[in-house]
Nucleic acid binder design. Structure first.
Lengths: 211, 211
DNA sequence: TGTACATCAGTGAACGCGCGTTCACTGATGTAC
DNA sequence: TGTACATCAGTGAACGCGCGTTCACTGATGTAC
């Protein structure tokens, strides 16, 4: 499944470069091309033919690597989950053990992912995608992330889910052009308010608003 | 544009009922059919032919009322904006002048709209939809709503936008099956926390958590 | 009340297109001897 | 080092389909006289 990168094999602009009859790394190139196309036109606006064309390959070649179009999109979503999971983990660990800082970084990482990897992001949340078992750590990336962070499941205060929902909403609204101010600002004040609100709820002194 | 309802013209299951050569209210029926189809299969999974079929009409009939497919989807989004605007207004006014209550109702109304009118909701926020000028009250439904509520624009505390983003995120995550608990619960505690956090920020006594 | 006519919402056949997918094939690669 | 062969990632022609859209038409409706 995982194609190890050969040491000497640099490939800038991998999609268009062909090295002869065999492509060499068509599977990877197809995923990248799909991500770019989905980013451009949305999950439904992309076609197998376009992906093949972007890789400089005949229309039937992709079927040597993916059973059908749905399989390619699913792989895109799967990888998106992995990428997001990695980013969230780095962000969280970079902020621990200060909860406010960690949660803030989590939100920023989420926004950055949606912005920098729109193809993967859209593939993950496309309408009609097979819904994962809710927050099952085995299949849902956020489930895995939240579980790994020790804040998942239905048993907690819900603060992690609220920060996730806020981030997700901001990312979506930014994408569709509805936000009149930078999403980062909204995350900063929003996460601060959620955490301070939670502290008040629990009767502990609320953390100060960060600079 | 607005087709006044004839007093005696009851129309249960309007789409399928034909009264002869002329449909009588094809435009309305097409919009309703489109909403149902989009709800079922997503904004890209619906076709003009399906809409026509659902109305019991030939494939070319819709073009007497809409220039093309995009025009139908746009009309769907426009009406969705109107419906949402109406719901939000009712919710807000039903909670005023108590801000916590009003904001809570706002969030619930948003969730209810996404749940009960998924066709309109998806049409409004479909990827690739022409982005409205950000929160322009003239064209953006939320812009109009927020402006009417006196909380819009970039000048405020951003609390309205945060509640919107939280609601939007929860609605989207619920749709895609990612939420492990009822969205209403998350709204209740989330809005409470945001408002209490804002109060702390401003140095005023925070509102108690509602029952 | 009856006829002529303008209007216009519908029909249905036809088009061109792009897409997903198949299938028999062929060229390149690597391994066995 | 050289030849035979298995493997398999590619080709390219072909298919069937559904869709968006057009066009000349026709049936129903309402108004003028």
């Amino acid at each position: 499944m995982a194609q190890p990168e050969k040491p000497g094999a640099q490939k800038p602009a991998a999609e268009t470069a062909r090295r002869g009859y065999h492509h060499g790394n068509l599977l990877e190139a197809l995923v990248e091309a799909a991500a770019a196309l989905v980013a451009e036109r949305g999950p439904e606006g992309f076609s197998m033919l376009d992906a093949a064309k972007a890789c400089g390959v005949s229309a039937s070649a992709p079927y040597k690597h993916f059973a059908d179009k749905a399989a390619l999109l699913q792989e895109l979503a799967r990888r998106g989950g992995q990428k997001l999971f990695d980013r969230l983990g780095v962000a969280w660990n970079g902020g621990r053990p200060e909860a406010p800082k960690a949660f803030l970084r989590l939100g920023h990482a989420y926004l950055a992912f949606a912005r920098e990897e729109p193809g993967y992001y859209l593939a993950m949340f496309r309408p009609g995608a097979p819904p994962p078992p809710p927050l099952d750590p085995a299949t849902s990336p956020m489930g895995a992330a939240l579980a790994a962070l020790g804040v998942g499941g239905a048993q907690g205060s819900g603060i992690a889910l609220q920060i996730w929902a806020l981030s997700h909403g901001l990312a979506s609204l930014e994408r569709s052009g509805h936000l009149p101010m930078p999403a980062e600002e909204m995350i900063d004040t929003g996460v601060g308010r959620l955490l301070r609100g939670l502290a008040v709820e629990r009767g502990v002194p609320p953390p100060a608003a960060p600079a």
